[in-house]
Design a protein around this nucleic acid. Sequence first.
DNA 1: TCAATAGTGTCTTTAAGACAATATCCC
DNA 2: GGGATATTGTCTTAAAGACACTATTGA
Lengths: 242, 242
Amino acid sequence: MTDDPWVPPVVLLAVDLVILTLRDSRLHVLLVRRGVDPYKDAFALPGGFLNHAGEDITAAAHRELSEETDLDVETLSLEQLGVYGDPGRDPRGRVVSVAYLAIAPSLPEPTAGTDAADAGWQPADHVLSGDLQLAFDHRRIIADGVERARVKLEHSALATAFCGPTFTITELQNVYEAVWGIRLDPRNFYRKVQKTEGFIVPAGRARKAVTGRPARLYRAGPRTVLYPPMIRPAPVSIEGGE
Amino acid sequence: MTDDPWVPPVVLLAVDLVILTLRDSRLHVLLVRRGVDPYKDAFALPGGFLNHAGEDITAAAHRELSEETDLDVETLSLEQLGVYGDPGRDPRGRVVSVAYLAIAPSLPEPTAGTDAADAGWQPADHVLSGDLQLAFDHRRIIADGVERARVKLEHSALATAFCGPTFTITELQNVYEAVWGIRLDPRNFYRKVQKTEGFIVPAGRARKAVTGRPARLYRAGPRTVLYPPMIRPAPVSIEGGE
DNA sequence: TCAATAGTGTCTTTAAGACAATATCCC
DNA sequence: GGGATATTGTCTTAAAGACACTATTGA
């Protein structure tokens, strides 16, 4: 047994995006259908390898995002979710993926993109239920992304990222209800968001639906951290997920 | 210009550990002094490259942790903090580091470890103040780790991980005060932790200091998610860091 | 005036904030 | 008893939970 000098192993670095949005008052995640093996024809998160060895990881996430959606980088919410690098998660070799969470306002069906044979919004509960065949460990990544969004809704103004430039309080409530998967009392919700100074600021009036009283419009305010936080009803068990 | 087939670039994968503990009622972080270039003689987080291409990342974090401390894997809190992979963060090449956050009960000075010329606990505020010369982007990683610990103290029973198998309520309060950097009212703290069912459970009595009434001992309870959460006093500005 | 949605007000309950008083040890 | 720390209690205040009612539009 010779005393070979040890050299550190190398890995392939990928970026995956959990892009969440609201469509028809339900949480959706953007998936692409893989056109190549492995997992050909299965659904997968948009993403890909670094373009070149010097590419910044966050820049790669932005690049992938703009390839899949038409979102302006400025108005966008994009944050790192975590690293997924189990050996064996990718049959091609040691691929370590950095997952990002992006929140998008309602968008039209994405134009079938670059390397994806097909892309579209899928209901999050359907994706997480296990009915859909997903590539790699992407179901876990999506579950983590949805949970992150749930937590961030409590303590940050992230909910406004699901809305357009202006929105009504009812629309904002729909965000919370869809992401948390529960119903909220509109009267208490009004009181809460109105007294949280800087959360939302008035932006005029407008008709919304074909019927009923027109709702006031608001824009996202300067506050990013909500204190006191929005309260999500108690978990059922005393045991709790991380 | 030939049409070379594109191949994805590879990176070196490292693991870095932010190990926090309480010593003398102050938050400390475990640092090693680098014995080799780059950043020779500067302080750095314990960590290193993957051992081999097939090593699990979390397993690598556990391995590094046991090399630096004598912590039992079972009683240990270890969670992924994030990925740090800016090009240029390491002059040796493209090194992407997965940072982990570990919480340790008070330990003796670590035995000078494997690849580290020297290792020891450093006060967190001193490290973050910038007085200490730190390798790579490790100051940022430590700052993120401390902030993660602060947030997790609010919503989880992580504070008990700073304590030994049994602890007094005053010791638990010291954890909160040290990590949050504020003072808490002991009477309100008692009320809060006692009424949070499953947070701590009685474990007998014992003398603690050389003087004063003996304090009751507790163990960590089954509850991991605190609801309602522990309340950290309000941020000053309406602007808030993420 | 009716259907439908938007918005405001009130009472109750829970829990945090701000305090003081008592208990139990060692010397 | 004195010094020191532990523990319990009370009053006040802030905010969530649970409700019912009024307002404004288009048809």
